[in-house]
Amino acid sequence: MEVSRYRPGEDDEPVLQGYDVPLMPDWAVLDGLNYIKDRLDGSLSYRWSCRMGVCGSCGMTVNGEPRLTCGTFLTEYGDGPVRIEPLKGFPVIRDLVVDIDDFLAKLSSVRPWLVRDGEDLPLTTEYAQTPEQLEAYRQYSMCINCLLCYSACPVYVLDPDFLGPAAIALAQRYNLDSRDMDDRFDVLNLDDAVWGCTFVGECTRACPKHVDPAEAIQRYKLTAALRSVLPWSRR
């Protein structure tokens, strides 16, 4: 395996370091990194948690593509080498660890929670939904904030002000929720939000949970356009 190493204060820029890792038939790339950490070089830094494709924390660039390392297997690359680098588009803190503060700020800006006008928190009333109402937003609720879509998005890599695929998809998740009373028009109908998307579609291709953020963005473009023509319309 070839692993990107970057140590603040020691390296001017990231460099690739090679490690000999056994090619086990059931090992994911994350297992290879853990082997390096446990057996070869304890100074290697990277994020991981669940190993089940749920937490989203182990996203990295594997042979040039954004992937979850827990769900990407060494056997996919034959005898290698397998090149592991941090996600593109984010500042590198150390080795494979990137700074996600910008994403967290963007995520918070779209208000990814149920908004109920005139009700005080915490909400204690139950709001029933039909299966059809649940299905309207279920796909977008599968996002695990792994940031693979951001790393794959050419717009975000070139323009860090772009709101980005995951934040927009999660905004749509709540816009389409029958229990929500917000429309998030103020944060989505902007040049740096849905209108900044050039519809390359790489975000959807990279998504491990099939959220299809590209579709979410295009759907809200239609919503925003209709609202501009019919100001009283919502969602």
Rank of each mutant, 00 (worst) to 15 (best):
C146T: 03
D161C: 04
I144P: 02
M142G: 08
C146F: 05
L147M: 05
N145G: 00
C143E: 03
Q139H: 08
V155R: 06
S141N: 09
Q133S: 14
E135V: 14
D161G: 07
Y156I: 03
P131K: 11
V157K: 08
Y150K: 01
L134A: 14
S151T: 06
C146L: 04
A152V: 06
E132A: 15
L148V: 08
S141T: 11
D161M: 09
P154A: 11
L158A: 15
R138E: 14
Y150E: 01
P160E: 04
S151K: 04
R138D: 15
M142Y: 11
S141A: 13
C146Y: 04
L147N: 01
N145W: 03
P154M: 10
Q139K: 14
Y156S: 09
E135A: 15
C143S: 03
G164K: 02
V155M: 13
V155I: 15
G164D: 03
R138S: 15
E135Y: 13
S151D: 03
M142R: 13
L148R: 02
A136E: 12
C149I: 02
N145I: 00
V155N: 07
P160T: 10
Y137K: 13
E132H: 13
D159G: 06
Q133L: 11
E135W: 13
Q139P: 09
F162W: 07
Q133I: 15
L147I: 00
Y137E: 12
Y140N: 01
N145K: 05
A152S: 02
A152N: 09
Q133P: 14
Y140F: 14
N145D: 03
Q139C: 10
Q139E: 12
C143T: 03
L163Q: 05
C149Y: 06
M142V: 08
Y156A: 04
L158D: 14
P131W: 11
L148I: 02
P131G: 12
P160W: 00
V157D: 06
V155H: 07
L148D: 00
V155W: 08
C146A: 04
A136F: 11
L147R: 01
S141W: 05
P131Y: 11
C149V: 06
V157L: 10
C143M: 06
P154S: 09
F162E: 00
P160K: 05
C149K: 03
F162R: 01
S151V: 00
C153M: 07
P160A: 09
M142T: 08
N145C: 03
C143I: 05
Y140E: 01
P131N: 13
D159M: 11
E132T: 15
S141H: 08
Q139L: 09
G164H: 02
D159S: 09
S151L: 01
E135R: 15
Y150D: 02
C143P: 01
C146V: 05
